[in-house]
Design a protein around this nucleic acid. Structure first.
Lengths: 327, 327
DNA sequence: AATAAATATGTAACCGGTTCCGGATAGGAG
DNA sequence: CTCCTATCCGGAACCGGTTACATATTTATT
């Protein structure tokens, strides 16, 4: 059926071992032989079978990626970063959505291992981290962090602080923080940080809870302005929630940013096309993914690295949901 | 290192062949033996190595998925549909983004084959379809269609017609169709269909070009209202473009839907959280993905199917970017 | 020219499963 | 009791690569 290394060997008049050696640039091979083999490979359009290779070597060219939900626009950006970086080095991605469920995470993890993946990049909660700790292949956490494992993430404390500082600076006196689910650590951290910063500023603070998803946010947010009719500044736990809030604000006749100012978190693509453009705290999602991939690759190549916790900077992106300084 | 089938065999006091038989429920195995083997498997926490299995069987539990760009929110919905359906049956997904580039498509396709994937789901342009035609594993096209290959897609003609009919019905007299890149077949088809329908309705038609991406749409659309200041109805080639248009409309002081009505295409999640909510033509993306997965699985299981072209229905989803009938 | 070292290549075992085949045992029919 | 068949199970080959090892040839060294 498919062309095997022995077909190539026969065509080139050598043994399979020799073909393998020229293929991998290992061991010796006479220049003439090398040429003959290369010709045969080309002539037969031979592509080595990764599965056989993987079986013997006990390592594949596959990396497993576990994300909560690729349907949430923050995660595709991460995934693209990972994938693009990986492709450069010839690695491929097996992907699994966990919906934050431990059971699904374990399920994917198991099958990743069964497929001899050489590394795993995962975005899972600390409470679920046990399953990742005793693997004998490299693991890098992405977006989430756990003390004992390498991780790539954005500076949530700085982000929360930045958002809080901005909204105070911009003159808001009664600020509502929309808090996402506390189990999601980065989301919780940005909340805590905003809250502390706001308290130090001596401003009135409301806390309002919301889900993170499109559906959830849109529902959660409906009662926001009933409950806090006088808020003039809102710190949302992510951009989706922020957009839902903008919607609700406009629906209830509030002008943005004149009556309410809103700051999101993440800087997903939506921010720049909604009206008004959403000011937000940018997490460099694509770069985070790329960085995680880079670290995994280094680890796969046996480069011993310290237990890296790679914290990437966030930044405030000013658009139109906040006032210009000086207004 | 990892537990192998021979470890289990030794533990259970039988041969590897016997373990394999109970594992696969093939051939005979005495009830007592079966129990002993199962116990051993459980005791050692044995998980069979998919790679070894795949090498011998010449087929894995892997399906390859090629999408243009997972960063465009329409595609994650497809991917989730595929993945969820596949997981049910124990298949895993290798994923690759092509950015519509033939070179990358081929690259991913090659490595998918090298990994013994049993099937491929792909969203590629007709012009690139040659590479898919002579594979000896099942292929299903998703979102895009090619005459000679099975495909799952939404009814673009109906969608285009529906949007056009609605916008006319809703009283628009000068309608602008935002046309996406003509190489992308479904996008082109919905354009043609809308255009024809509009022409039959005898209404004034403008055609305006735009990219499909967030960045692209946002730029393209900036000159829309300079060029056609009197349009009162807009048919966008997708929801991203539609939202960008809404932005531009509001920025230039137009009220939606009083001054301009806008209809998008796709029904991505954003539609329901922007303000005003975006009326759109819904493609059942998740279901499309699931259906494609279902077909691939059937084909993998040797069920001979006709050259299925599975056309899923679209529907108009009314939100607030169009007027209520009767207004 | 003799010897050592470097180069070149093939044989065979191995990775961890699956399956063909054949031998052994048990149960049933005659 | 014999014979046949169904059941049970292990040995060994195989999937398509890689690599340790052995052997053969070339090149360098003195």
């Amino acid at each position: 059926m498919a062309i095997t290394i022995r077909d190539v060997a026969k065509e080139a008049g050598v043994s399979a071992a020799t073909v393998s050696r020229v293929l991998n640039n290992s061991g010796y091979a006479h220049e003439d032989t090398r040429k003959a083999v290369l010709d045969a490979i080309h002539k037969l359009n031979y592509k080595p079978n990764e599965v056989a290779r993987s079986l013997f070597k006990q390592k594949s060219k596959l990396i497993g990626l576990i994300l909560p939900d690729i349907t949430n626009p923050f995660f595709p950006a991460l995934a693209r970063g990972v994938e693009d970086q990986l492709r450069e080095e010839g690695y491929r991605l097996i992907i699994g959505n966990s919906d934050e469920h431990l059971e699904q995470e374990i399920d994917y993890l198991d099958t990743f291992i069964q497929h001899n993946v050489v590394g795993i990049i995962a975005s899972v909660n600390e409470a679920h981290s046990d399953m990742l700790k005793n693997l004998n292949i490299p693991v890098v956490l992405l977006d989430r962090t756990i003390e004992s494992l390498p991780a790539v993430y954005a500076d949530q404390f700085e982000g929360g602080k930045l958002a809080a500082r901005k909204i105070v600076e911009l003159g808001c006196k009664e600020i509502t923080i929309i808090r996402g689910p506390v189990e999601v650590k980065p989301v919780y951290e940005r909340f805590v940080s905003s809250f502390q910063t706001l308290r130090q500023a001596g401003v009135k603070i409301n806390v309002f809870d919301s889900k993170l998803s499109f559906q959830g946010a849109s529902n959660s947010v409906k009662t926001l302005f009933d409950k806090y009719p006088n808020t003039n500044g809102i710190l949302a736990c992510n951009d989706i929630v922020a957009v839902a809030v903008m919607n609700e604000a406009q629906r209830t006749g509030r002008r943005i940013p004149e009556d309410v100012q809103i700051i999101g978190f993440d800087d997903i693509s939506i921010c720049e096309i909604v009206y008004p453009g959403l000011s937000t705290i940018r997490q460099p999602a694509y770069e985070m993914g790329a960085k995680a991939a880079e670290i995994i690759i280094k680890k796969v190549k046996q480069e011993v690295l310290p237990n890296i916790h790679c914290k990437l900077p966030v930044q405030f992106v000013e658009r139109e949901s906040t006032r210009k300084v000086g207004d």
